[in-house]
Design a binder for these strands. Sequence first.
DNA 1: CCCGCCCTGGACTTGCCGGTCCATTTTACG
DNA 2: CGTAAAATGGACCGGCAAGTCCAGGGCGGG
Lengths: 211, 211
Amino acid sequence: MSRSGRSAPRLTAKGMATRRRIVEGAAQEIRERGAAGTTLDDIRARTATSKSQIFHYFPGGKEELLLAVAAREAERVLEDQEPHLSDLTSWAAWQEWRDAVVRRYEQQGVDCPLGVLITELGRTTPAAQALTGRLIDQWQSALRTGIRHMQDSGEVDRRLDADRTAAALLAAVQGGVTILMSTGAIGHLEAALDTTLALLRTAAPETRPGT
Amino acid sequence: MSRSGRSAPRLTAKGMATRRRIVEGAAQEIRERGAAGTTLDDIRARTATSKSQIFHYFPGGKEELLLAVAAREAERVLEDQEPHLSDLTSWAAWQEWRDAVVRRYEQQGVDCPLGVLITELGRTTPAAQALTGRLIDQWQSALRTGIRHMQDSGEVDRRLDADRTAAALLAAVQGGVTILMSTGAIGHLEAALDTTLALLRTAAPETRPGT
DNA sequence: CCCGCCCTGGACTTGCCGGTCCATTTTACG
DNA sequence: CGTAAAATGGACCGGCAAGTCCAGGGCGGG
């Protein structure tokens, strides 16, 4: 982050406000119409700015702007799971996290801004891929920490592969969300989460997926 | 399917061949560059056809063509899981299916033609959403049948909710694939599948995810 | 109070891409 | 064969959207 700015013009307070307004407006527009369907003019209109402003703050054009939006949305994804995600220290906490995730996506419905950005940007831009990778790492890491904590407190079998289970949990969420986005059905997300969590709960001495 | 053809011109053998060539070529192009990034000219060039041919066979233009491609890819997804998907009658069969899925996506790597189509088409076109819905239903139904079979033969607890577990399994695959597409890591798919299957295997009398 | 650097507006350019049109060739079939 | 329908080629159109440019405002620091 910060300004690694080559000839980066120093932003005044006003400038920063405008910049933020653009990112925020773009994010909303994209949530409603997808990244491909969003034009700079749409953004310009919604944010009451002019073409030159967009290019002033995002010299790299649309791609740079979309990347900024993606970064913002990635933050949001994790933020929206707090404070639960960072405190998976009891079964009750896990349940609360599970409910928070379901609730969040239920109300978001078909609009998955990040998903859109990933599929439409990630394919082509290495920077976007890196962003996604980082998000997944952080997310999985938080889940792994939670599982380890449960193991330390003796509520989950120590022989369970925490990292692998965290990966499965993350995939469960992703898959549920993907299906939600495609069909509008929230059931799959719930089923996937509950099933994977059930495994965690029933973790008995010999329960241990794959290697 | 079939011709519900209004003023549908009867296709000659040559015509059908050309039509198929277009769909096939479009599918490949999309796999490589995404639906949004694929232009009719790209398809025209790759399939050695002319603009008028595309519109001749797909009067609805690009949208109709993409829909045809999506339908084709949806078929493929299920086909590629055969003969395993229709014969989930033993633990060995389940394992083979699991391996087939992993292998298929491993070699496909980042290119998920259907995913692309869904995210870029499904949002806007109800027809595409219907297509997705049907695919998911069929897939989940096949898995459910497999689970029921295992229950009938007494290898899985009868109290397990077969439909819900099938949904979880499907979500696991989807999630794993989504992450594979984003990052190139196959591990999540394996972890998600193995974990969910592990639950199936450990289905003991009182093991039962949520209601 | 004044100089300069941001910030802003919006017209303009450029290229692309979906879609149209019509002329021509090929095929089906009696 | 001959004719009608189908298949094909490719020039052309129109619109849209990303990106450029320059002519000003306006704010802040010296």
